[in-house]
């Protein structure tokens, strides 16, 4: 198979970028999209041109490092798939393929197709945890959890943090990511004590990072390689509004003097 690649090249954050065109020839349909780019990079290197920088690590669809907007869709055209598990057999011979980085002001481009997703980490750091330190813990079977609840929590927790939801959202919102993280713990008994403080803190951090707002397009759900449902966004909205309107403000304020 032969392809024409139209790839976004950019020296670094802040410097302007532009598309470059490359031709790749004799690509096997069994080759993955990233392996096709690997081959391109080898050819570029051999001819003395700088290879295209793109993120990837596990190459089995779980680390969330790979990105790429391929022909206008984050992670390409196949639903429920990361770029690293996208194969060239999904494209038609001779096709022009446009490859762009995630576009979001919260994810500045670092080089070519590589973006900085540390905003996601800061959202997690704001409250995406149960405050529990290492050491002896209660016997886990002392708190039974309905399997349906555990499964739903896992549906949310299986988010790989790739950022495709942000890339896909016409508003550049991080609602699917944040809501998945919030809902994972909000569903489980372990997450209850900090439930409302958590949602408030994480939403505030999300907004501070400069993500857009949700307009219920559901593009995020369609782009999510783990097919996480937008139902979690409604869930988070509910928790957030409840925290804002009903729960005590700064419940820990009085505890700090202890």
């Amino acid at each position: 198979m032969n392809f024409v690649l139209k790839i976004w090249r950019q020296e670094g954050t802040g410097s302007g970028g532009a598309f470059s065109h490359y031709e790749v020839r004799d690509v096997e349909p069994t080759v993955s999209f990233l392996e096709m780019l690997d081959t391109l990079n080898e050819e570029l290197t051999e001819s003395g041109q700088e290879p295209v920088a793109f993120d990837s690590d596990c190459r089995e669809g779980i680390c969330g490092m790979c990105s790429l907007v391929i022909n206008g869709q984050p992670h390409g055209p196949i639903p429920g798939t990361t770029t690293c598990q996208l194969y060239m057999r999904h494209f038609s011979d001779g096709e022009e393929i446009t490859i762009e980085p995630w576009r979001s002001s919260a994810f500045p481009v670092l080089r070519d197709l590589v973006v900085d997703r540390s905003a996601f980490d800061r959202v997690m750091q704001a409250g995406g945890y149960v405050t529990v330190h290492s050491g002896p813990k209660p016997e886990p079977n002392s708190i039974p959890i309905e399997p349906e609840v555990a499964e739903e929590a896992l549906d949310a927790a299986c988010c790989i943090g790739c950022g495709a939801c942000v890339a896909a959202c016409p508003n550049g919102a991080a609602m699917l990511y944040t809501s998945a993280k919030v809902s994972h713990l909000a569903l489980l008994p372990q997450g209850q004590p900090e439930r409302y403080a958590r949602v408030t803190a994480m939403v505030e951090q999300m907004e501070e990072e400069g993500f857009g707002s949700c307009r219920n397009y559901a593009e995020c759900e369609a782009a999510c390689p783990k097919e996480i449902s937008i139902k979690f966004i409604g869930r988070m909205n509910r928790d957030y509004l409840r925290a804002a309107l009903r729960e005590p403000i700064n419940p820990r304020g009085k505890m700090e003097s202890q």
Binding site: V130, I143, Q190
Partner: peptide, 19 residues
């Protein structure tokens, strides 16, 4: 296992809610 469950790791559960 105790530590992970306390952190909110959603291990598979039996119908009765036990691990």
């Amino acid at each position: 296992i105790d530590q992970a469950v306390a952190q909110g790791v959603p291990f598979a559960r039996e119908y009765g809610g036990l691990l």
